[in-house]
Amino acid sequence: MGLLLPALAGLLFGLGLAVSQMMNPAKVLNFLDLAGNWDPSLALVMGGALAVTLPGFAWLRGRPRPWAAPRFAWPQATDIDAPLLGGAALFGLGWGLSGLCPGPALAGLVTGQPLLFGFVLALLVGYRGTAWLQGRARAA
């Protein structure tokens, strides 16, 4: 149960990215391109996902614990601070340049395109490099 659940959740997630075509960066870029050949699909993907998570998470809030873990790991941070907004802006820049965010980029690897492997590798380098810098800043 504890092993099956994350695998099943991942499977549904990957299937959702494929069915919705969010793993196609052209589809994402056309959503972001309000002045071009605008494709509103992404808004419906987000809407469909939120139609499940909004009531679903509210229901889980009232439950004592997950089925296969001791506690819910709800994020604790609430600050709307410079790292949050600066990070979101950097992410938005990379997302707008490529049409790729982490989930779709990973899902797209199944098509075997070498450039996507490059993107995911660069993503990991950026993520771990920033984590390292944050660690040094905290230690200083």
Binding site: A9, G16, S20, Q21, K27, D39, G47, G48, A68
Partner: peptide
Amino acid sequence: IPATEFTPVSALLGGLLIGLAALLLMAGTG
């Protein structure tokens, strides 16, 4: 950017699957 078409049904369906995945991961493993 290569042209794409508005695909409301598959977008909504895929979105529901993604939401279900997120709900399942939280309900099961927190």
